[in-house]
Nucleic acid binder design. Structure first.
Length: 562
RNA sequence: UCCGGGGUCGUUCAAUGGUAGGACGGCAGGUUUUGGUCCUGCAUAUAGGGGUUCGAGCCCUCUCCCCGGAACCA
């Protein structure tokens, strides 16, 4: 994975500040030349595209410097966490193309953490507070306002130890006591105003069961877990910047087995027209706006996988956008370009008509069937060719005929000649329509000399359209997806992204396709010629999800003139 | 209000005191049996004011703007 992604734009490896920093550490021998990172999700939901960047950075940096990256579950809060998510996350990381090995857990270190907490008590750097959450919060003060020290702050070591052990015993109710670090109630950084290390929660933990009622907070668990594992570079997102001082403070007060790890923050990945808030994602599912965590309109890795986004393309994208400290939001078009770029090279071409109208070749010999040859992928000759039956009656896309063509329309219209891909030139002689004026049938004549789609006299046509013989067509269903949100930054207007939901983000069409589409493997992505890339559903044969459309200058131009 | 982090083409990422560059997007053209791909070209940026320097996007200083921070969440 350390090689340059094959479909990334051909530019020199972009420098980024994290890479520079790790390299500098190596040159100075800061960690004895060792590089170790970790990807630390909380198992309380599914991974999304934002996590993909973190995974690429965490695993990528380790790989690049010959180091190690572990998948660590930050499972310090039993009320939100479940084994189901653990399994899904491992699966998603692997799908992305990284080997998580045997995952580790913050809960593996509960006993060590506990011992170190007693060490802090013994050295005078932690105390048990009997006050409730509200009181503690109020005493914390505010920005530019002083904090108030807890009346329990100066308990003796003996009393603290006894109380802390009682907390562990399970005899004390939730919320009755917490363990706090004795740091600095006047610190300008609120994180240092005697933060909570332990709270009592009589809850079942997905791994440790009922063994503990004492659960460490994130800040107390994270850096210590890093140190226990031998992490050198603890990479996280920008919002933890203000936690770094506390991260260091804890580390300096613990009897570490080795080097003190260092936290570095970088900007998380945000995309236009997309949300990644777990809470809001869940709401979309609960409200029935989407069908589930793997609904292809969602940015979860499961959804993107189902939609046909290749993991390699996602990785290339993540590698390409780099790592910085600027809060930013990448355009989704950039991601889509990476998806198309990869699929263009790899996806087999097939013909499918999604909004069929009938085209009748009036001079075609009745009942005659002819096999025509089509290339499977013009970008890759190794994919070979296939034969497709052509007859005098085919389905074509209703978009490809206009009784009254707009300016610069190249496709079928009365009198116009076009090419049916791989078959013949046909010229439109007329059409019929129903009472409402809808076109029901297009009439053409074909030129027998143009078999294969070439005119011996050298005359050109401006359009080539796809088709499917009506007698040989297999029915398919195609799910078309639009962006879930109509706004670049969902929720920017009102504060709630739900207000920016686009009404019809999913359309299912009953189409007609060539027989080869019956052979597409679950999850495989093919290109429906001129329409886009489509992924075969994981379960249902005949159901295809549109991964992404083809770039369509004609449609874009039409949209603009409207 | 206090502390911290940021501010470079429309967007995003580079340029580490020495020619402001790439990608996506846009526009124009060429090739093409996908209005796809590919190729060529064009346009657009250092938030503002002072300073240091032969030379500043980069260093100093003042101002402005954006983001984060006062869970027993992570």
């Amino acid at each position: 994975m350390s090689e340059t992604p094959s479909n990334a734009p051909d530019t020199p490896a972009a420098s980024n500040f994290v890479r520079d920093l790790v390299r500098a550490d190596n040159e100075q021998g800061t960690f004895g030349g060792r590089v170790q990172t970790r990807f630390p999700p909380e198992p309380n939901g599914y991974l999304h595209i934002g996590h993909a960047k973190a995974i690429c950075v965490d695993f990528g940096i380790a790989e690049e410097f010959g180091g190690l990256c572990k998948l660590r579950f930050d499972d310090t809060n039993p009320v939100t966490e479940e084994t189901e998510y653990v399994d899904a996350i491992v699966d998603d990381v692997r799908w992305l193309g990284f080997e998580p090995g045997e995952p580790v857990y913050a809960s593996d270190y509960f006993e060590t953490l506990y011992q170190w907490a007693e060490h802090l008590i013994a050295t005078g750097f932690a105390y048990v507070d009997d006050q409730d959450a509200e009181t503690i919060s109020a005493q914390r003060g505010g920005y530019g306002r002083p904090g108030v020290e807890s009346p329990f702050r100066d308990r003796s070591v003996e009393e603290n130890l006894a109380l802390f052990r009682a907390m562990r015993s399970g005899d004390l109710p939730d919320g009755s006591h917490v363990l706090r670090a004795k740091a600095d109630m006047q610190h300008e950084n609120m994180q240092l105003r005697d933060p909570i290390m332990y709270r009592i929660r009589h809850e079942h933990h997905h791994r440790t069961g009922d063994q503990w009622v004492l659960y460490p907070t994130y800040d107390w668990a994270h850096g210590q877990s890093d140190a226990i594992e031998g992490v050198t570079h603890s990479l996280c997102s920008l919002e933890f910047d203000s936690h770094r001082a506390l991260y260091d403070w804890y580390l300096e007060h613990c009897p570490l087995p080795g080097d003190q790890p260092r936290q570095t923050e970088f900007a998380r990945l945000e995309l236009t027209y997309t949300i990644t808030s777990k809470r809001k994602l869940r709401q979309l599912i609960d409200d029935g706006v989407v069908d589930g965590w793997d609904d292809p309109r969602l940015p979860t890795l499961r959804a993107l996988r189902r939609r046909g986004y290749p993991a390699t393309a996602i990785r290339s994208f993540c590698d390409f956008i780099g790592v910085a400290k600027t809060n930013s939001r990448h355009q989704i078009e950039m991601l889509e370009w990476f998806i198309r770029n990869e699929l263009n090279r790899t996806a087999l071409r097939r013909m499918a008509v999604l909004r069929p109208i009938k085209l009748v070749v009036t001079n075609w010999p009745a009942g005659h069937v002819e096999m025509v040859e089509l290339v499977n992928n013009p970008e890759n000759p190794d994919d070979g060719v296939r034969e497709v039956p052509f007859t005098g009656e085919v389905w074509i896309e209703d978009d490809d005929f206009k009784a009254e063509p707009p300016p610069k329309y190249f496709r079928l219209t009365p009198g116009r000649e076009v090419r049916l891909r791989g078959a013949y030139y046909v010229q439109c002689t007329g059409f019929s329509n129903d009472a409402d004026g809808n076109v029901t049938e297009v009439h053409c004549t074909y030129d027998p000399d143009t078999r294969g789609g070439n005119a011996p006299d050298g005359r050109k046509v401006k359009a080539t359209i796809h088709w499917v013989s009506t007698a040989h067509a297999v029915p398919i269903e195609a799910a078309l997806y639009e962006r879930l949100f109509a706004a670049e930054v969902p929720g920017e207007r009102t504060g709630d992204p739900i207000d920016d939901l686009r009404p019809n983000s999913k359309t299912v069409l009953a189409g007609k396709a060539e027989a080869a589409l019956g052979d597409v493997a679950p999850g495989q992505v093919v290109q429906f010629e001129r329409l886009g890339y489509f992924a075969r559903d994981g379960e249902r044969a005949g159901l295809f999800h549109r991964t992404v459309g083809l770039k369509d200058d004609w449609a874009n131009a039409q949209k603009r003139t409207k």
